[in-house]
Amino acid sequence: MPGGLVALLDDVAVLAKLAAASIDDVSAAAGRAGVKAAGVVIDDTAVTPRYVVGLTPDRELPIIWKITLGSLRNKLFFILPAALALSAFAPWALTPLLMIGGSYLCFEAVEKIVEALLGHHHEEEVADIHDAVSLEKRQVAGAVRTDFILSAEIMAIALAELPGLSLAMRAAALALVAVAITVGVYGVVALIVKMDDIGLHLARRPSAAARRLGMGLVHAMPVLLQALSHIGVAAMVWVGGGILLHGLEAFGLGAVPHAVHHAAEAAGHAVPVGQGLVEWLVGALGAGVLGLIVGGAIVGVLHLIPRKKAH
């Protein structure tokens, strides 16, 4: 009996070591995958704050919480199982599905640009909704819909960094990436949108330095939120165009992706310092131009042509 107990304890120790090694492998894989998806994460952070414009301050954090739950639901219940299933049974379908999502991002961004140029602003649209419940539902639905596309890109990038792992370990690593990125992104978003409240709190402090900092935050936040709104739209064009460039290359239609890549390399080599930054900027500009073209074409088909017929 004691010998059996010792053997059982040995087996438990071995299993514990295997489990610890598996956790380390999953953590390392999730870390590599998360780093690769960092660019899209930044875009997601820039896009989201515009969905709380027009809401009362007391509803900002509850709205962000709802969007966070929607984002986790997108990643864990829809995208993760679909990505694993497609990678196992129909890997050829991942690229076209991502391209469809990228095209949608381009369309949504260009549509907002057209609305701004025509004088139909998002804030005016929000102001037209007098029912607070309807306004919140609209904002959450729009944010979660956009998040779905960005989350799909994040998960696809992460999945590409997990070759050779078992299905269970890939699922665990992707789940870890999904939770970590979602908490990180919407934690930063919550901090951004509540920064003016932090500023008001500091402005009431007895310290003169705290008051100056607080007032500076209060005055800066409207400008920052407006800038993030524009950055979010630009990020949607850039990410959508980048997805399309990668998709074209995957399908053997490499003329446009290669032209963008060569232009970025040439621009990088042409400057004495900051070559990596210049190369990235030119590549992002090329992706953005493609995104504007594709998004403009979709907007034209869905909006301009029907309006012309109506006239």
Rank of each mutant, 00 (worst) to 15 (best):
V6F: 07
A7C: 00
A7T: 04
D11R: 10
A13G: 13
A19Q: 12
A19W: 10
S22I: 04
D24I: 15
D24A: 15
S27A: 15
G31S: 11
A33T: 05
G34N: 05
V35I: 13
A38L: 12
G39E: 05
V40P: 01
V53H: 06
P57S: 12
D58Y: 02
I63D: 02
W65M: 11
N74Y: 07
K75R: 11
K75H: 08
A83N: 11
L86E: 07
L86S: 09
S87C: 05
P91I: 13
W92E: 13
T95F: 03
P96A: 10
M99E: 00
C106F: 00
V110Q: 00
E115C: 06
A116T: 10
H120C: 05
E124P: 04
E124F: 06
E125S: 14
D131A: 12
A132T: 15
L135C: 09
V140H: 04
G142T: 03
V144H: 07
V144M: 12
D147I: 03
D147C: 07
L150V: 02
L150R: 02
E153K: 03
E153G: 02
A160K: 10
G164L: 14
G164E: 13
L165Q: 12
R170P: 01
R170D: 04
A171M: 14
A172I: 12
L176H: 09
A178L: 11
A190N: 04
K194G: 06
L200D: 02
L202G: 02
R204M: 09
A208C: 03
G214R: 00
L217T: 06
M221F: 11
L244Q: 01
E249Y: 07
G252F: 08
G252A: 09
L253V: 01
V256T: 03
H261G: 03
A264C: 08
G268H: 01
G268I: 02
P272A: 04
V273Y: 11
V273K: 13
G274D: 12
G283T: 08
A287T: 04
V289C: 08
V289I: 14
L302P: 04
L304N: 00
K309D: 02
K309V: 05
H311T: 02
